[in-house]
Design a protein around this nucleic acid. Structure first.
Length: 577
DNA sequence: GCCGTTTTCGGCCCGACTGTTTTCAGTCG
């Protein structure tokens, strides 16, 4: 039993109760329970096993018992009875745009529809349109939604949709009737993947702007279009909403639609305590209210509630509101703080650009130093360097550096962590490098304890400056290999090993949820693009956003330091850094 | 089912949009 499985059971119970027409608040309680299970800092499975869930907000007596049973026996009778009432394939129906519990229930009871396949056939046989509450248009929309689901992925990585978001923002800014523009939602909060996009505009001509939005070249299908809201599906399949509000409403709408839902629930209840009812249009006095604060920007809303401004990346209800009350929010790292970066590849292994090309791009970006760390010999698939080629590369780096004068190139290696935790190069070779990134690139299927031990052993090596991509995850493609993050963070703290924030768009690894803990234990971060081409260096901005989401400050990140400081750091023995 | 500075019962966010209705239910965020 693990955290994910526990949350999934609660999530599925919520759906099944909805199908049965249960009290919506009970449904919500299960859904919130799933949320709590996923976001709790402590080891929820261990706590559940030991009957120590008491006092956790959102987990009451009933959920406590159910989680306890689940953790101890791996099963839950209540759930098994519930799930036996419906076929497993019925869950797929909830993914169809426009179908909710009531409609699914009707389809199931009247037509026996319990899978996507049966739904499709029922629509094609014109049976759905005849049902009460359904009609011809609904039937067409269901078929379209099924087709869209078959054709497209339902989530996108933050990195891959960035160019498109920038494009749409530019177009909206140029609209003559639009005065203010922003993207909101999980994209603005820098979640590693997003399921949809939310755009917000200030205008007096909502209907017209909404209409124009639906004719953008990126739009594939229009789902809805009214006076204040338009909803479309873009050609790459992503769902995209536009909200049009007045300029006075804009800060409220921006706050509201940026979420997260959990953050907003907490903010609104705080507002109520102060005598204000907060929604997407404004701050309205309840009977206890004092004078209405002036709000022109989002910052003014937080300030009216007696809070420090909370950066969007932090709005996950993970302690940011409490910190803002005490004026204790960190000043987050910014892109302009970065002076260089480590973990980059060249044509020597599997990169697409030469050493000279990579350095040139780094200089263009205004960096003062660049770390080169090509793959080591065990990564045969990536043309990894053996000892001889590595030493040649070090020589080439020193020569290029000499020629450039002033720009520092750190010679390193991304050395493979072998199965037993030993390294692909011996200490005598590693000692000749300026630094070294150690990463796992093979044998991903070890159990958690063995994998964690393997990684910790590598970190104990004096020459390992930093740990590369902690879990090896490829977002939406390959799961993380299982590691005990808490132990790895402790080990990094104990050995003075840096943990990399790999900001390749597919990775964003270590996950943002762990950085605050690492920071509090004194572990240093290095924001590394894992660049395999000149363009790859541009992902540093993405890395900064994730670092911010992990509560990191400038001083928590190695590559905000100057060349001299980094040299000093690397010269100092690990234990003394 | 959860929660409590309206505290053990009675609330729990609510507004926009659509389609099928003839005044509203369902979905979505």
């Amino acid at each position: 039993m693990n955290r994910e499985k526990m949350a999934e059971v609660l999530e599925k119970i919520a759906l099944l109760l909805e199908l049965k027409g249960e009290n919506p608040f009970k449904v919500r309680a299960y859904r919130q329970g799933a949320e709590v299970v996923m976001s709790l800092e402590e080891d929820i499975v261990g706590l559940a096993k030991a009957d120590q869930l008491k006092g956790i907000k959102g987990i009451g007596e009933a959920l406590r018992d159910k989680l306890g049973e689940l953790a101890k026996t791996g099963r839950l009778e209540f759930y098994e009875n519930l799930i036996a009432e419906f076929p497993d394939t019925i869950f797929d129906l909830f993914d169809v745009q426009g179908l909710g519990p009531k409609k699914i229930k009707a389809l199931y009871e009247a037509l026996g529809v319990d899978s996507l396949e049966k739904l499709k056939r029922a629509c094609e046989a014109d049976e759905v349109a005849k049902l009460a509450g359904f009609g011809a248009k609904t039937q067409v929309k269901i078929l379209e939604a099924i087709a869209a689901n078959e054709k497209f992925a339902d989530r996108f990585t933050l990195g891959e949709i960035k160019p498109m978001v920038e494009n749409i923002l530019d177009t909206l800014r140029q609209h003559p009737e639009v005065s203010r523009v922003s993207v909101a939602g999980s994209y603005r909060r820098a979640k590693e993947t997003v399921g949809d996009l939310d755009f917000l505009v200030a205008t007096r001509q909502g209907a017209r702007v909404c209409e124009d939005f639906t004719t953008l070249p990126e739009v594939d299908a229009v789902i809805a279009c009214g006076d204040t809201k338009a909803s479309v599906r873009l050609k790459n399949g992503i769902h995209c909403d536009l909200r049009a509000v007045t300029s006075a409403e804009f800060p409220f709408a921006l706050q509201y639609f940026s979420g997260s839902k959990e953050h907003n629930v907490a903010i609104r209840s705080l507002a109520l305590k102060k005598g204000w009812s907060l929604n997407e249009y404004g701050l309205n006095p309840t009977d206890r209210a004092t004078a209405r604060p002036e709000v022109n920007e989002e910052e003014d809303i937080y300030s009216a509630l007696g809070l420090q401004f909370i950066e969007p990346e932090l709005r996950e209800n993970r302690g940011e509101i409490e910190a803002a009350m005490e004026n204790a929010l960190p000043r987050l790292v910014e892109l302009m703080n970065l002076r260089g970066t480590f973990h980059n590849h060249t044509t020597a292994s599997d990169g697409r650009d030469t050493l000279e090309g990579m350095v040139e791009e780094a200089m263009e970006l205004g960096l003062q130093y660049l770390g080169i760390s090509d793959h080591s010999k065990s990564s045969v698939y990536a043309n990894g360097l053996d000892e001889e080629r590595l030493l040649q590369q070090v020589k080439a780096i020193r020569e290029l550096e000499e020629k450039l004068g002033g720009f520092r190139i750190f010679a390193g290696s991304e050395v493979d962590i072998l199965k037993d935790g030993s390294l692909d190069f011996g200490d005598e070779i590693l000692a000749k490098l300026d630094y070294c990134v150690a990463s796992v690139h093979s044998i991903f299927n070890l159990d958690e304890a063995t994998m964690t031990e393997r990684i910790c052993r590598a970190m104990e090596n004096e020459h390992v400056t930093m740990l590369g991509h902690v879990t090896g995850r490829l977002l939406l493609k390959r799961d993380a290999y299982v590691v005990d993050h808490a132990r790895i963070i402790d080990c990094a703290a104990a050995t003075g090993t840096i943990i990399e924030l790999n900001c390749s768009p597919m990775r964003l690894d270590m996950d943002w949820r762990w950085w605050k803990r690492a920071r509090d234990k004194g572990v240093l971060c290095s924001i590394n693009p894992d660049a395999h081409s000149r363009g790859g260096l541009h992902h540093l901005g993405l890395g900064v956003r994730v670092a911010r989401k992990g509560w990191l400050r400038r001083e928590d990140v190695l590559n905000t330091r100057s060349v001299q400081e980094v040299e000093e750091f690397l010269k100092t023995p690990k234990g003394a850094r």
